[in-house]
Write a protein that binds this DNA or RNA. Structure first.
Lengths: 139, 139
DNA sequence: TCGATATCTGTAGATATATTCAGATATGAA
DNA sequence: TTCATATCTGAATATATCTACAGATATCGA
């Protein structure tokens, strides 16, 4: 089981077992830049407060900051900080109405990610085999 | 525009604009525990190195640690640390073959999340309208 | 204008995380 | 058993992140 060498783009050689597969995979792999963008998105979803905020918006459609704070039981200032990050990443969108700011999900893909991830959670330890669809409890 | 009060489960009162909507949303909202689990999953996906590792496995199907390291151009020890976290969360699965450990994705939902997120990236600023499905390139 | 309200922003401190180095473990071959 | 290889683990450090507090901004109504 000899190891071969693959010289990366940076000129740094690394030992490999299956250099052809490595090169083929590298060719199909998303770029560093794309991976960075996706990681950034997932990182935003990867905080319990933000996760709950997003699911609250998924359920409610639209909520103002104080109602979001009340719903997820978190300080309004924390909600505001969280929403700023989510807004900068275009995950949520804000609408002003008088003194209130109303937030909603601003991305169909993220909505699908949230939905899919929740399904994942609730079917967690079942095998991968085809299974009858379970009824979703939804508003 | 008067604010009402909603007394949370913890007895802490918070001002709300639309208390009925808050209560209704709270009822449908995923639990703290579920949100925590999902956030944990997203957090794992939210690191550029781990993201690239997962996409490499998505493309290649199965790779050993050294080939993963070569593919994503990261030190083998970093890969090992990353894989340990992903394995603990059942995102990847390991198989030993002699001295080598081969890793693969161990979750159909995560595979879908990765696929969907990549689609998200590549269709980023298109409108929400229905569009023809694009052909998937797979290993 | 003024005060009240809803939200935002800057900052600081505690906590969490990724990466690297050094060394440990496990396997196969001689 | 001994050596070489592939991977793992623990610890240290540098960095990133969340939360809370204080104060700023924006809007409404009097």
């Amino acid at each position: 089981m000899k190891s071969s060498e693959v010289v990366g783009l940076d000129g740094c050689a690394e030992k490999t077992v299956d250099p052809k597969k490595v090169v083929a995979t590298q060719r199909q792999l998303i770029s560093r830049d794309e991976a960075g963008q996706l990681a950034e998105l997932f990182r935003l979803l990867g905080d319990p407060t933000r996760t709950r905020l997003l699911f609250a918006l998924l359920e409610a459609g639209e909520l103002c900051v104080c109602d979001l704070a009340a719903t997820v039981e978190v300080a309004e200032t924390s909600v505001s900080h969280a929403l700023r990050l989510l807004r900068a990443a275009r995950v949520v969108r804000a609408r002003r109405d008088g003194r209130m700011m109303y937030y909603r999900l601003d991305d169909q893909h993220v909505r699908m990610l949230l939905d899919l991830s929740r399904e994942h959670l609730r079917h967690d330890d079942e095998p991968e085999a085809i299974r009858p669809k379970r009824r979703r409890r939804q508003a």
